[in-house]
């Protein structure tokens, strides 16, 4: 069997393939050493900072392991526990995370679109307004969380000072199970700027001729939106949807800071990753169980991503795609 390849001078060369796998690996490295050398920082980074922890956590997930003493083989107990002993808290975390995702993903996309439509006009000073809307996106999560945490403090926060100065009763924000989730979703809307920028970029890429042609044919606002704008922006919507699902299911940092590291009243903000965190990093850590929970989340995200990819026929990549 002959393997053909192009050398550094562009000449096509052929070489008989060795049956010895070690020789073949050696040959592969010899032929591609420049490329491998260039990508080696990334490859090594992925290997040691992603693959090693992943394999390590998969290994830990089959053991009763606290991070200190020896691993004790636990069979599949860590994977069945969420559906037996820990069912109540596990499904609470799942329901909180899904509720947040179901509301947050479409809401941010629709409002991002509305905001983009508003800011996509040719008005004086529009760039400054766009920048102001985008500004919260560049604030680090921890700072953002701390700011809102202080703002929403029931007793001394600026939010309630404004509300009470209007003669209204203080709003409980994160201190009531009935308002905690709504508060979180509302505060997240201040990060709409990221979504808005993508919408504006997509809107500006739609050829004007399409709208002109539609107008000549007598198309109204609804037809233009659903027959031109949305389909032409569908690759961006698809991207946002995938990233939104992954991001929402992994919600942690902002909630952790805003609630001061607590799962909110009556576990109303017990997100899945927060549960993983509490399991792994409590006073009596359970690294094995936390690893199993992480792998369950990995599978859940994988399934949802796969479903979205498999049902992505609605995405319009252009005539030639």
């Amino acid at each position: 069997m002959i393997e053909y390849y192009t050398d550094v001078y562009g000449n096509v060369r052929g070489k008989r393939k060795s049956r010895n796998p070690l020789k073949r690996i050696g040959g592969y490295f010899k032929r591609n050493w420049v490329g491998l050398l260039l990508v080696s920082p990334v490859l090594l980074g992925i290997l040691f900072f992603t693959l090693v922890p992943m394999v390590s956590s998969l290994y830990d997930s089959f053991f009763k392991y606290d991070g200190i003493t020896e691993h004790i083989w636990n069979n599949f107990a860590n994977f069945t526990r969420p559906f037996t002993d820990d069912r109540e808290e596990f499904f609470k975390a799942i329901s909180v995370t899904f509720l947040y995702s179901i509301i947050n993903i479409p809401l941010t996309m629709v409002l991002g679109y509305a905001l983009a439509l508003f800011l996509n006009q040719k008005l004086k000073g529009i760039k400054i307004i766009r920048m102001l809307y985008y500004l919260p996106v560049v604030i680090p999560t921890v700072i953002y969380g701390l700011l809102w945490r202080n703002f929403t403090n029931l007793e001394y926060g600026l939010g309630n000072q404004i509300i009470t100065s209007l003669g209204l009763k203080p709003f409980p924000f994160f201190t009531s199970k009935n308002t905690a989730m709504a508060t979180l979703i509302f505060l997240n809307l201040f990060g709409l700027g990221g979504n808005m920028v993508l919408w504006i970029a997509s809107l500006n890429n739609i050829p004007k001729e399409l709208y002109e042609a539609a107008e000549i044919e007598g198309a109204g606002w609804g037809t233009k939106t659903f027959r031109i704008t949305i389909p032409m922006c569908s690759p961006m919507i698809f991207y946002n949807l995938i990233m939104g699902i992954i991001g929402s299911l992994q919600t942690f940092g902002n909630v952790f800071v805003m609630t001061g590291g607590t799962p909110g009243p009556k576990n109303s903000l017990l997100f899945y990753v927060m549960k993983v965190y509490y399991t792994a990093f409590s006073g009596s850590p359970e690294i094995g169980y936390a690893s199993a929970l992480s792998w369950i989340l990995f599978v859940i995200i994988g399934i949802f991503t796969l479903i979205v990819f498999r049902t992505s026929k609605w995405v319009f990549y252009g005539e030639d795609a």
Binding site: I25, L47, L51, V52, M54, V55, S56, Y59
Partner: peptide
């Protein structure tokens, strides 16, 4: 081979 190496390192 990569996974084996990873498992070995782990």
């Amino acid at each position: 081979a990569l996974f084996a190496l990873t498992a070995f390192a782990t």
